[in-house]
């Protein structure tokens, strides 16, 4: 659910990073935070446990610039990836405008990826959304590790609809902005359809 304010000439959109535990959702946000000019970003808020596992969500507001005199703001959220935080994940998806699914490329995490994707589908459906109709992209993260599955195989398992996908190494920033841009673009084009 975007918020378009004609009075302050602002457009606010919400993008959620989804994916299994330890796949690199928070790392994506941290990289974006580090590489963005101070005047374009707000605080990176992390509601995490003492061991830096996301407990509720991370939040990063980004003001990217202007389109036709309207300030465009993206609010980036991550969900807690661990299976038992299911209830919290549902809450964060409320009012989402676009989703980035971060998949862990390591072969041994493939089952966790599939499980998380299924969880995303169910949670979106509960709110009347469908992955197919939402601005959505997949990021195959951790491509720098030795034991990664080939992208073709991951596409078969996690991207049957053939949506936009990106290879990423969130720790060094490879693919991070590309993925965000991919979904941000879809979100704005979706708004164009409606307004």
């Amino acid at each position: 659910m975007s918020f378009i304010n004609y009075s302050s000439r602002e457009i606010n959109c919400k993008i959620v990073y989804y994916g299994p535990g330890l796949c690199g959702k928070t790392t994506n946000l941290q990289f974006i935070y580090r590489k963005t000019n101070p005047e374009q970003k707000g605080k990176l808020i992390s509601l995490a446990t003492e061991t830096e596992r996301t407990l509720f969500f991370d939040f990063l507001p980004l003001a990217l610039g202007d389109i036709r005199g309207f300030k465009v703001r993206f609010h980036l959220y991550t969900v807690p990836g661990q299976v038992f935080y299911a209830a919290s994940r549902k809450l964060i998806l409320k009012g989402v405008d676009g989703v980035i699914f971060v998949a862990d490329s390591q072969i041994e995490r493939m089952e966790a990826n599939i499980e998380s994707l299924e969880d995303l589908r169910i949670n979106l459906a509960e709110q009347g959304y469908a992955v197919e109709k939402l601005p959505y992209a997949v990021q195959y993260n951790k491509r720098d590790l030795p034991n990664v599955a080939p992208v073709e195989e991951m596409n078969k398992l996690l991207n049957v609809n053939g949506v936009q996908w990106f290879e990423g190494v969130a720790t060094t920033g490879i693919g991070v902005f590309e993925t965000l841009k991919g979904v941000a673009k879809q979100v704005l084009l979706e708004l164009k359809k409606h307004y």
């Binding site: 004609y6 000439r9 990217l64 036709r68 005199g69 841009k181 941000a184 673009k185 704005l188 307004y195």
Partner: peptide, 20 residues
């Protein structure tokens, strides 16, 4: 009806690329 002053009406790929 779309709002007359809609900022999206003429939004282009270039506008979006400029944001990044």
């Amino acid at each position: 009806g779309k709002t007359a002053e809609s900022p999206f009406a003429e939004i282009s790929d270039e506008d979006i690329d400029n944001l990044f």
